[in-house]
Design a protein around this nucleic acid. Structure first.
Lengths: 190, 190
DNA sequence: AACAAAAGAAACCGATCGGTTTCCTTTAAA
DNA sequence: TTTAAAGGAAACCGATCGGTTTCTTTTGTT
């Protein structure tokens, strides 16, 4: 197995463990046993557990946004439809068997300091998603695309928390109805 | 110091430590040194760390809702004004020096299993807040009080996450403007 | 002043933590 | 086929984890 893929192999096995059980609660020993590698190998590719966590979060950012964008582009025919499709993506996600909330919200809960490297990755992840939403709003010829993206982002975050903390599997549907209001408002005031 | 107050003493000192550094990352040794009690005493009043965590979350639920309700009732003159005042409360909270997000969202991140006792306390905390919002909506003669409370709850959760993860100290202002839309919508369709 | 309960200090427990080192086997390239 | 790097297994490291025990001091009550 080549170096690059071995590194990826470890990351992909560590990811679901961190996601399901948290970062502090997941030990290195468990990760290597699940990945089928030795400690020596893990520490060859990652200089510390913090380094591994950072790499996992970066990977998760890539995977998650790729899925979000792909599904949104697939489901939405118009730019306006794509904005609404964001919530269909959320709905499907919330109803997956292995849904444990947003990994970045969860990471921010354990690394509360906003200056912490892991927290920064979380903040940047959210920024990238907001930028994508804004690009969709722009595509829909909405003048106040920044305002709308901030609004839809709040709705998405709220739906995620409601789904995870309260176990409300239909929170994305509720948020979608709310999103319609703001999209129509933004379109009408253009 | 009487038994009851000593128990409360430990809880009140453990609370900010858990809030700031998380649950798994906060050790018993740190808690007793901050509280100025011995391990023996701590384990006299709490049968385990999990038990202490549960007690801290229960205490936090009481303190937080008391503050939310008091401030909301103080700021809002009408029932409608109280619904909006919820977001003024959030705004003040987000701008406190020691704001590290919602302790219940954070706890749910570490105890992801929805059946976990600590997660259940978090879910119930959110239910109680939704019930309070609903009572305000009812007071404002809004027929669909359940729907509105669910909507405002999503906005509040979204604002909290945005404030904590992205450090946006004005997210409550944005959410408040969004809330106005739904309050007016609920009032007009009555 | 005598006494019992409460609580502090600290040693101690086994387990686990993140991380390093040693030794041996597998692998792949020359 | 020789050789060297890669990687697995596991011992080992000091530190810390949650939790218990022992022993001593403090406290409050009679």
């Amino acid at each position: 197995m080549a170096s690059v893929s071995k590194r990826e192999h470890i990351i992909s096995h560590a990811l679901p463990l961190f996601y399901q059980n948290g970062f502090n609660a997941t030990g290195i020993e468990l990760i290597i046993s699940q990945a089928g590698v030795s400690k020596k190998t893990l520490y060859k590719y990652f200089k510390s557990k913090d380094d591994l966590i950072l790499s996992v979060l970066t990977k998760r950012d890539e995977i998650f946004r790729r899925k979000l964008i792909d599904k949104t582009e697939f489901l939405g025919k118009t730019a306006e439809g794509k904005l609404l499709a964001l919530f269909d993506f959320l709905h499907a996600w919330f109803n997956e068997v292995n849904f444990f909330g947003c990994m970045f919200i969860n990471a921010s809960a354990e690394f509360t300091d906003i200056e912490h490297p892991s927290h920064i990755v979380c903040s940047e992840h959210k920024n990238k998603i907001k930028a994508y939403i804004k690009s969709l709003a722009f595509e829909a010829n909405i003048k106040k695309s920044s305002e709308l993206s901030a609004q839809l982002n709040i709705l998405m975050e709220g739906a995620i928390v409601e789904a995870h903390v309260s176990g409300d599997k239909n929170s994305a549907i509720k948020a979608k109805k709310m999103a319609e209001v703001f999209i129509n408002l933004a379109l009408s005031t253009d």
